[in-house]
Simulated assay, not measured.
Amino acid sequence: MDPSGKVAIVTGGNSGLGEGGIHRLLRAGASVVSLDLSGKPPPGADFVECDVSDEGSVKSAVKQVVDRYGEIHMLLNNAGIGGLAPIATAECPCNMDEFRKIIAVNLIGAAQVAAHVSHRMIGNAPSGTDGERGVIVNTCSIASFEGQEGMGAYTAAKAALAALTLVWARDLSRHGIRVNAVAPGFMDTPMVASLPPEFVDELISGNEFPKRAGTPDEYGAVAEFLIRTPLINGEVVRLDAGARPPARTQWAAGQ
């Protein structure tokens, strides 16, 4: 799908990877609406406040976008939160409220947005040679495949989102809607800005090449590629410089 002249929603678009995706789509000529809880979108993008974990908020936000623009053609399903905790320690079991919160945003939230946006996409007029009506790009993680110690809730959500990418592609193929995903490795975003430098150095050292953090613009470039390439469907593309995380980091083990 050519983004030019089309309408995109980017969840979590006011910072981090979502912001990188917005910049790419704006440069490609799309109208872009950021759904986020707070902050400001990049210049040139629209903004609708939305809590993706609340289905009522999602339904209202999607309706606002349709009321303003008429159609939705692209979704970067990006909103997410982090969190680290083992399933249990000698002192106590895992805080299941925190576990549920991560699942509610990263998995249920992504599903709610995909459901309401794809429902609207089905009503679009077919476009291009293949008659596409829409494209969804989920933001997964290398934790979808190699979750490290303490990443139970985050891994559960991102692994499920990776698995659902093919299922949703199959659900929506009859309507001319494709679904793919990007699985970033360590990226330079606000979510990891507070990590200790020695921890960051260890994480980057696991990259084969290049040994650096990824950037939001690189995420945006892959998302744009997936949007523009009709034959790619149901795929999860790793964006991790060849990293394969070990069970635990030396930094975490030393704490």
Rank of each mutant, 00 (worst) to 15 (best):
N233E: 03
G5P: 09
G44S: 13
C92P: 00
G70T: 07
C50Q: 12
D2H: 01
G152C: 15
V33I: 04
G18T: 01
S31Q: 12
P42V: 08
P41A: 14
G214P: 03
A8E: 13
V105Q: 01
A153G: 02
F209I: 02
S15V: 01
P86W: 14
L75C: 04
G80K: 03
S205M: 05
I177S: 06
V222L: 13
R238K: 11
R24Q: 13
S118E: 03
A61N: 11
P43D: 15
E49L: 08
R212N: 06
S141N: 01
A143P: 00
F186N: 04
A104W: 10
L75V: 00
E149N: 10
T129W: 08
N77T: 06
L37S: 01
T229S: 15
P126C: 05
A125T: 14
K40M: 08
V137F: 08
V200S: 02
D46Q: 11
V66H: 07
A163G: 15
I227G: 07
V32Y: 05
A125M: 11
E149Y: 15
A8H: 04
L203K: 03
M191T: 08
D188A: 08
V65L: 10
M74V: 13
K40F: 00
G39D: 13
I136V: 14
N78V: 08
G147W: 08
D188W: 05
G21Q: 06
P184M: 02
K101H: 05
I22F: 04
G206L: 12
T129R: 11
V237G: 00
G16H: 04
S31W: 01
T11I: 03
F47R: 08
S118H: 08
G123W: 05
E208C: 13
L164R: 01
Q255H: 08
G29F: 10
S53W: 13
R27C: 02
A79M: 11
E202V: 03
A79C: 04
A125Q: 14
M1P: 10
A243M: 09
N106M: 09
H73W: 14
L164D: 08
G131D: 11
L76G: 03
A183Q: 04
